[in-house]
Design a protein around this nucleic acid. Structure first.
Lengths: 353, 353
DNA sequence: CCAGATATACTCAATTTGAGCATATCGAAT
DNA sequence: ATTCGATATGCTCAAATTGAGTATATCTGG
């Protein structure tokens, strides 16, 4: 089953449609559709990237997995999609969002756990929101969870996670050699290669932006809980499969994966880090924040040279003394860069050696 | 009126929502919603970037503006969103799409020209498709139009377009000093600054990726036809306003603007140019293609060094002789780069001097 | 006062990038 | 046949950027 999101980067084999003559569009057979707005709200608590999760925004039906704040788009109430999102988030968590950005619209059937067949098909739009921890303290409901709780294999802060070679690698290789189905010919990259590229195995290098591709691959391979929840008939051998990260409701883990991918990519070419920082900060704190998101992306004092020469920050004149060593200058974000250069960001690179 | 898409890059002032206690989600007041799938299909004919337009896919109601191929998402027929898109495109134009990528989901009211209030609210999802010109020749309906036909101010191939200083600049400055409304305080960038950054006026530099921001600004300022079509009540003085590019139906010009933005951005970090090229090509043809999309982005023979050293291409061994000068080596795309490096692309830069 | 920790300044070489020169080969005009 | 215009392609060279390291300053805690 081809996941839709992977089409962002790969060809998909075109559907072999008969070439009908162009017809006038009919409005028949449009089954009811509901639009779900889902928010991945990201903050940082002590160098830990966290996401806001809620548990009980629907009647508790025994399922206790975490979920993201979400709600249906009501076009009569919400003038725009993101007003709708802000309204739902405020209502469910008490948080007024600042920075909000649309991620992706998912529409494939069978990824949203429809209780009844008569329920409307849900198309879900994922959003990324960034917030500071002081604003984040206001929340009235929901809880902050490390995003690595849901994606342990993405946590490279202490080096390569063991789960990669201990569990994920072997199970994926096993899956790669299993039944491929007849449609495997059309696929541009075969399973082996996709695994290699996604998870940086066999000499390929790890790309911290491929969060979504990795999750979709694990889903496709049936290695995450959601895959079995969505298609119980394929649950063979699920019992002995170890849990790979905590599951989420509906397709929320996919939305979160998209959010992480986006943050990791965007931090490099737009000054979004500062949405997560307090007004004043030291350069080391800034670096720690970037590393919390990207992983310890081998930088050094070059990092300070980078942000200073890029004009991203300016000294406040104050010092921070409780630093454990020599006092550090405090800096603030230079909002003027937005008026100067087209694409400023903390453009860290993979590293030469 | 804040355009929704501009939220990709700017803060928006949070809606001041009362903090209600989290409630169980109700399914009341969900007015019917229809999802429109819209395809901006881009190709290249003789160094001219073109987009596939259709005219008569709905009952002709006198309006004869161009539109993009589109159709409603029918969840019972279309397993995924992009299968739906491919189906509609095939039906309306006879073209089987190859590379397809989702762009953005627009949902704001009043941008989609609802004939009757009783009609369902339409949320439209924009897609970008890239195709080669030989495949593009197959089309049975619709016509290819230069994308600069709709966005003349984006055409920098012969230097800075006169329309910028002759028309757009003055009219925008006039609008900037007009009535700002009471909500202008909360706006992070005022009109002057937005104009400056979007259109590279007053010393700011032109950013070829800001296609959508520019169009949204013109829409907001009432300088494009669609603005008056959507809100006839504000049509004061529209008669004497010169036409800024050809209008499109519904919000299709916005979708096209998003598509151009995306192509221009993506060509720099993913090998998407090759979706537009024939199998074999000379390096100069490749450069011309890039320039047709980005504008003459001051490169030189450094371009060849770039693509060759990046391993993006490999020589076929053949030569192209009818080149007007010394015969050129033919190259083909090295598909293997996808397996080697994480983000290869024709990463041209603005230029130092 | 010292050890440990962090902050900050500065250096230096490898690499990348911007810009230009020189030469090769074709077609068309003279 | 020769010349000119146009393109192709190889090579050089200096400027800028980047990766990596060294040296020194100043705090906290023992």
């Amino acid at each position: 089953m081809t996941s839709e999101a992977s089409l962002q980067n790969f060809h998909s084999s075109p559907t072999t449609t008969k070439h009908k003559k162009p017809t006038t569009m009919s409005r028949v057979d449009t089954a009811p559709v509901e639009i779900g707005l889902n928010a991945a709200i990201v903050a940082l608590t002590r160098d830990e990237p966290v996401v806001l999760t809620v548990r009980d925004n629907e009647t508790s039906d025994g399922e206790m997995a975490d979920g993201l704040p979400y709600g249906p788009f009501a076009p009569l109430e919400h003038r725009t999609l993101d007003i709708g999102l802000r309204t739902w988030v405020a209502e469910q968590t008490g948080l007024d969002l600042g920075y909000v950005e649309q991620l992706y619209t998912f529409g494939d059937r069978g990824r949203h756990a429809q209780p009844r067949d008569s329920d409307p098909h849900v198309v879900s739009i994922g959003y990324l929101a960034l917030t500071r921890i002081d604003a984040a303290a206001e929340i009235q409901s929901g809880s902050w969870r490390s995003w690595y709780h849901f994606f342990p294999w993405e946590d490279w802060r202490k080096g390569r996670p063991e789960i990669l070679d201990a569990t994920i690698g072997p199970r994926l290789k096993e899956w790669a050699t299993k039944d491929q189905g007849p449609s495997s010919q059309a696929r541009p990259l075969d399973r082996q290669q996709r695994i290699r590229m996604c998870f940086g195995l066999d000499g390929a290098q790890w790309d911290e932006e491929k969060v979504l591709e990795r999750f979709e691959l694990l889903y496709e391979a049936g290695l995450v809980e959601e895959a079995h929840r969505d298609r119980p008939e394929t649950a063979g051998g699920w019992g002995e499969t170890p849990k790979l990260g905590a599951a989420m409701r509906y397709d929320h883990r996919r939305v979160l994966a998209t959010a992480i991918s986006r943050v990791r990519a965007k931090i490099k070419y737009r000054p979004v880090v500062f949405e997560l920082m307090p007004d004043d900060f030291t350069l080391y704190e800034l670096q720690k924040t970037v590393e919390a998101i990207l992983g310890p992306h081998l930088h050094k004092q070059n990092f300070r040279r980078l942000v200073e020469s890029a004009g991203l920050v300016e000294p406040t004149g104050e010092m921070k003394t409780r630093t454990g060593g020599r006092p550090a200058k405090l800096f603030r974000f230079r909002r003027d860069v937005l008026l100067e250069r087209p694409a400023p960001g903390v453009r860290v690179k993979p590293g030469r050696s």
